[in-house]
Write a protein that binds this DNA or RNA. Sequence first.
DNA 1: CCCTATGATTCGAA
DNA 2: TTCGAATCATAGGG
Length: 345
Amino acid sequence: MNDQTRLMHSHGVGMAGHPGLAQHMQDGTAGTDGEGRKQDIGDILQQIMTITDQSLDEAQARKHALNCHRMKPALFNVLCEIKEKTVLSIRGGQEEEPPDPQLMRLDNMLLAEGVAGPEKGGGSAAAAAAAAAAGGVGADNSTEHSDYRAKLSQIRQIYHTELEKYEQACNEFTTHVMNLLREQSRTRPISPKEIERMVSIIHRKFNSIQMQLKQSTCEAVMILRSRFLDARRKRRNFNKQATEILNEYFYSHLSNPYPSEEAKEELAKKCSITMSQVSNWFGNKRIRYKKNIGKFQEEANMYAARTAVSATSVSAQGSQANSPSTPNSAGGYPSPCYQPDRRIQ
DNA sequence: CCCTATGATTCGAA
DNA sequence: TTCGAATCATAGGG
């Protein structure tokens, strides 16, 4: 952009305040004899060299005079053409660059993380989905989860306001430059094509700024994510209540400790953990129980007794929703002393 | 420190 | 896909 500005500037000076030329043309005596013309050109050049000595008002007046001259459009076109052929052609061919792969990568990531996607709901849903996909986070750590979401939406908000700001600045700047160029095109050779080119240069510039924003947003998300991931990697035991609920189900279905999808869902809800965590828990429990029944004897007895007690008190309590359906039948794991659904005598 | 408990992950089989 | 089994990695208790 710099050289272009310089270019415009130099042309601007040359044309805008060209007293000699203006006067010369207004005389209507231009080009009557070769000698005189040469002399005129010499004058013109001389005055161009000394243009900076002129006051602003003087230059303005001459500019106006020049602008109204009947030869102006023709002169303008010629100058435009010359300019196009000489300077601008150097820059030709570098347009239409292919979409930056890195930019696409950034865009994709922002979209995937729910930063760049549709508003609020979709965003956090995407975040939750991403988190879940990365390995089934426990809703048990709902504080961490919401923390993550809050931070993400914070990033998202900053990103969007910044983006909007850039957009606005870009538009403002573009219209400003366009107005300026249009204004100046009355006095110096600026073709519409050139304006267009200028606009595209501005947009490219702002795009690179936007890319920086995207880059830093991505970094922020990565940092947040890694921190969240680390937090998740640190195993947290389920809380006591959840363990009790799971154990209760396990021991009361000891002969067939395979909760159905619905049962898993219900357990997950009750324990505030995910279904995959429920599955993990039952997988672990089954294998560990089987491996060492003796070790779990006491626990089994305890839960069996508790279930029995709760079963007897159901009539009174009326709200014992635990251990849904499918009680014991033969063929499961070897049972400890108590049959889970057998009442204490 | 060590040791055990425990949630998560991986992998092969059904 | 789900399960069992082995294994990993951390929590948590001495």
